[in-house]
């Protein structure tokens, strides 16, 4: 069966078993290895991509269900939120081994796009699906607050500095 979808803005028509998870299509067929395998059962979030702008675990998204959809991966993530997240991730050297971080970054971008100045609880709820065995959680939290402040103007800055003070 052939499936048509767009990945990072580029159109693809793929001849694959429609049950094949998007993850393996990205990695094995399209050579986009930034999206990682971690569990295969939507438990760890390493495979997080955006489908039509919303986060989705690629390991449990059969390609047949994505016909006509727009997929964005870590390689293609763009815009002010993506750039702010990358900048704060770099500024704080958030990642350690980095393997889970594509998923962390994609979840963080999606959160900031929806909640410009997330609270700690918003972060807990949005990021709970992304496991980091290096346990970089403290820096991820700090970086999200910091990215919110860098995009969001005063409200964001106020909240972020509060968060900083708390530390």
């Amino acid at each position: 069966m052939s499936v048509k979808l767009r990945v990072n803005g580029q159109a693809h028509e793929l001849e694959v078993d429609p049950e094949t998870p998007l993850l393996w299509v990205l990695r094995d067929h399209l050579g986009l290895s930034g999206t990682k395998y971690g569990c295969g059962v939507a438990q760890c979030g390493a495979c997080t991509v955006h489908v039509d702008g919303a986060p989705r675990r690629a390991c449990v998204a059969p390609i047949g269900s994505l016909a006509g959809r727009q997929v964005t991966t870590i390689e293609g993530a763009s815009g002010p939120h993506a750039e702010a997240v990358r900048a704060t991730w770099e500024g704080l050297d958030v990642p350690q081994c980095g393997y889970c971080q594509a998923g962390q970054v994609m979840s963080a971008i999606a959160l900031l796009e929806r909640v410009p100045t997330p609270s700690d609880q918003d972060i807990d709820h949005a990021m709970s699906g992304n496991i980091c065995r290096c346990a970089t959680y403290v820096r991820i939290r700090r970086a999200i607050h910091s990215a919110a402040a860098s995009i969001g103007g005063q409200a964001g800055q106020a909240e972020a500095s509060e968060a900083e003070e708390e530390r």
Binding site: T48, R57, A61, A110, D122, H125, G129
Partner: peptide
């Protein structure tokens, strides 16, 4: 929650154990 919707993991039909 924002950015952690049910549909982040749960698709249109059962998939493996999900």
């Amino acid at each position: 929650a924002a950015a952690m919707q049910c549909a982040t993991c749960h698709g249109e039909s059962n998939f493996r154990s999900i």
